[in-house]
Write a protein that binds this DNA or RNA. Structure first.
Lengths: 351, 351
DNA sequence: TTGTAGGCGTTATCAT
DNA sequence: ATGATAACGCCTACAA
């Protein structure tokens, strides 16, 4: 049952609460174009008319219709956000930051999940494209930077968690935390506590940051003059369950170790559990340090020592970069360095 | 630098990859309205033309533009989702379910956070309204059902986690889990393990479900003929930190207890931590049961016994209900009963 | 069953 | 600086 068509032009008010730009113009005694100009700052308008229009806008409670705007001007005031899993404890925080920051500028994020699958990511981007988003923020994922740049049709693009070439003039920006430094600090912390046999729990091999965090681990060992024991390095995939599995394998292989650096907090949770299953206590017998400082890490048992880098802020920065691109400016990265957060899962090696 | 206007009508192809309905019509040798009718099933069309149009759509890779659709017909193929905190470990799961289910029908969710604040919720709904969403899914929140029904302008509305009057003909539907039953099962589990002094950690008093879960707890005690000790009931707010605080108070007051039912998993995490701070082990000295069965609860130490009700499925059902409303049907609730998931935070009372 | 024409609310082009 | 006017891509009342 479609609502009947609106009257044939010239409606000063409508049944629903929708106020149009046209009504504002009428009330202010100017043309719609002028109102539009004022709204967008597209051209200079006499202070007098501007005042009248502002008054009318306020009086009528007018809010521009993003849908109509999208059709007419191409700006939908929405930015597509490709996340991998919307419920991820890690990226979820970033989404919050993105949302808050975009909102301040009147933009709305459209979240679509890529599920760590190329095909899904492509589909997500297509969906977003068909919704005429004004730009893209991509959180990690499988697609390469080059391909991303291509399928996003030249729209402003911010990639999070990917080493970026950030070619100027390409309306594209890469934002990533210093994984290597963070991992190094985590490992140095353990070394400083007297640990020598420090296991490394790798993240998903397909993530760039996994390799970076590994390198940070290696840096720390090298700086301390410690040899690398390949047997101490086990593979995970960044999920909790993989931490359980990897550590179980390590224990089965009877490789002795007194500490472990896990490439992220989630796997660290799994690691603690796997150790507990064998009655190995953390930190009494094995120290563990994670990476990410998820909210949850304050409440695990024991509370997790980890590397913090405010995922929320990453989101904020990503949104800010997008806003800059949207405004034709060049974004400035301003991520704080990752910092070690010492809690209770690590302690001095008892001899 | 706006892109130049498209040519003056009659463009068989365009520079960008955008294929319009008009082009499809041209290629199929029919009028645009016919294509539109086929797309929307608005009227019957001869099989012949339908075939031609389908072919053209496929050949051209045409995808209807939701923005234009929104302007013209009022359907934007997007539904507004008011969540309280997008990064919530609890609601995040529901968002996933909503996203997946809506996508299948070609809808896209627009997530906006209400931050557990009436004003923010109102603003969120206004934003969504101005984006011309086709319907609303509201996850909990502070606004009353009546007010929600009012400010959502009669659009299809699905409310999650709120006892619903689900007035027929109102295009509104309430979906909620059986909190009372779940809480009762959790408490009965503890009673069955021999516990008699069972503390209750309440959730935010402003949430309906907090009262419901309390009632389930009371039901279980009553059924077992156990007296209610008000001293054993402490207030939290559903966040981890409140679990720490509440349990600390309880311990300071020296009220003896051997088990605790926490109104949600997050507070249970905090409770475990608070107990550990006093060297009270779970489950050796105190058993704990949570509610929600968050992903994380498999990996806490110890893994948490809790009441599961697949938050993801709640999201799926909410989306399904929305789709039904959108299609003019009456939604059918089909949430499974909450089930107890026994893990390792609860054990038989040792005498 | 099918086509034509007008309109959805805004922006952009082209005059003035 | 300001105002008509024509799109934007699609839907639908109306006519055929």
């Amino acid at each position: 049952m479609p609502s009947s068509r609106a009257s044939k032009k010239a409606h000063s008010s409508r049944a629903d609460g929708i106020v149009t730009l046209e009504q504002v113009a009428a009330r202010a005694g100017v043309s719609p174009s002028t109102v539009s100009r004022i709204l967008n700052g597209t051209a200079s308008v006499s202070a007098e008319k501007k005042a009248a229009v502002d008054e009318a806008i306020r009086a009528l409670g007018f809010r521009p219709n993003p849908v109509a705007r999208g059709l007419a001007g191409g700006r939908t005031m929405s930015v597509g956000v490709v996340t991998q899993r919307i419920a991820s404890p890690f990226y979820g925080e970033a989404l919050s930051g993105i949302e808050v920051e975009l909102e301040q500028a009147g933009y709305v994020p459209l979240f679509v999940s890529g599920n760590w699958r190329e095909t899904d990511e492509r589909k997500a981007i297509e969906t977003l494209l068909s919704r005429r988003v004004d730009g893209f923020i991509v959180l990690a994922g499988r697609l390469g930077n080059a391909e991303l740049r291509e399928i996003t049709q030249g729209l402003p693009l911010v990639i999070v968690g990917r080493q970026g070439e950030t070619l100027p003039g390409q309306r594209m920006f890469c934002l990533c935390i210093d994984n290597r430094l963070g991992a190094r600090r985590a490992t140095e912390h353990l070394i400083g506590l007297g640990h020598r046999r420090i296991a490394l729990l790798l993240g998903d091999a397909l993530h760039e940051d996994s390799a970076e965090r590994r390198d940070g681990y290696l840096d720390a060992l090298a700086a301390a003059g410690l040899a690398v024991d390949p047997d101490l390095i086990v593979q995970g995939d960044y999920n909790e369950a993989s931490g359980v599995v990897a550590v179980s394998h390590l224990l089965e292989r009877q490789v002795p170790f007194t500490a472990m650096f896990s490439s992220n907090d989630q796997m660290a949770y799994g690691a603690v559990l796997a150790l507990a299953r064998r009655n190995i206590r953390v930190p009494d017998e094995v120290s563990i340090v994670g990476f990410d400082d998820l909210m949850m890490s304050r409440y695990t048992m024991p509370p997790l020592t980890t590397v913090g880098h405010s995922v929320y802020d990453v989101g904020v920065q990503a949104a800010r970069a997008m806003l800059a691109l949207l405004g034709g400016d060049t974004p400035q990265a301003d991520l704080p360095q990752p910092e070690l957060v010492v809690r209770e899962s690590s302690r001095r090696l008892s001899r």
